[in-house]
């Protein structure tokens, strides 16, 4: 998972788009997926997601992330399966039954999470975090302090993942075996949250001090030299995503 949500340089259509458009479009796609109740619609969005990823030469990363999201969504899907007694009954349960509607609900959960997660991942892969933050400040007039918090959070994800990897390595060297079932692994990993938390607090503190001494508080909307103009392509893509949202509501 090295490189998780880290910018991958490129010259694809998505790379060239305005960061605000990309962020807005991915949010519209997320809303569309959550509002849609059609398996076909979600499957179509998923296909478009993968086509876009392939066009940006990010298919391997996207498939890797899809695997992680699918594993997570599987847990939610099982809950949906057991708690949605709809359609023709297939298996009886003490509190209801599993029916054809339950299976549909299960598929909906998996497809919905996959289809809405990929656009957001792609946005981060094709846009520098600094550009997202600067564009939010310049174009959307978001106070820099908030934009910085957002981008710092994203930027720290790979750092913390690297830290966690190092901590697990150190514990493995002491004889901790991180193999076996999920419950065992979770039980072993729980105490490791302490060093991770300590390291996070220390890093955050250092980053805050470093930002302050470099004039963080003096920064205003005018401080950034880079401009983020909108091109016709941005307008077309935005319109397409609004259409997608409408389709999601209707379907």
């Amino acid at each position: 998972m090295r490189g998780f949500l880290e910018y991958v340089p490129g010259s694809s259509l998505l790379h060239r788009m305005n960061p605000v458009t990309k962020l807005a479009c991915s949010l519209l796609a997320i809303f569309a997926c959550f509002l849609a109740n059609s398996l076909v619609f979600l499957a179509a969005v998923l296909v478009v997601d993968y086509v876009l990823a392939a066009r940006c030469k990010l298919l391997p990363q996207t498939l890797g992330l899809s695997k992680a999201v699918a594993s997570f969504s599987l847990m939610l899907a099982i809950i949906a399966l057991l708690t949605t007694p709809e359609g023709t009954p297939i298996v009886g349960l003490p509190w209801g039954y599993i029916g054809t509607g339950s299976l549909r609900a299960m598929a909906l959960v998996v497809l919905r999470l996959l289809a809405c997660a990929i656009p957001l991942f792609l946005t981060f892969y094709v846009t520098k975090v600094n550009d997202i933050s600067n564009a939010l400040v310049k174009v959307c007039h978001v106070p820099y302090r908030y934009a910085f918090v957002f981008t710092s959070t994203v930027r720290f994800i790979p750092v913390f993942m690297n830290d966690m990897e190092g901590i697990m390595e150190a514990q493995t060297a002491r004889g901790v075996e991180f193999d076996g079932g999920l419950i065992k692994r979770l039980r072993l990993m729980a105490p490791l949250c302490v060093p991770l938390l300590v390291s996070s607090v220390r890093k955050t503190n250092s980053a805050a001090i470093a930002a302050e001494v470099r004039g963080f508080s003096l920064r205003t909307r005018e401080s950034g030299h880079k401009r983020y103009p909108f091109a016709p392509l941005d307008a077309i893509t935005f319109a397409a995503c609004v259409a997608l949202l409408v389709a999601g509501v209707v379907l």
Partner: peptide, 23 residues
């Protein structure tokens, strides 16, 4: 296994905070 190896080979890392995890 990691536990077998740890009995024979001790490893001290550069950063003690990656190793320390108890109260």
């Amino acid at each position: 296994r990691a536990s077998q190896l740890a009995r024979h080979v001790g490893f001290l890392f550069q950063n003690p905070d990656r190793q320390i995890c108890c109260d």
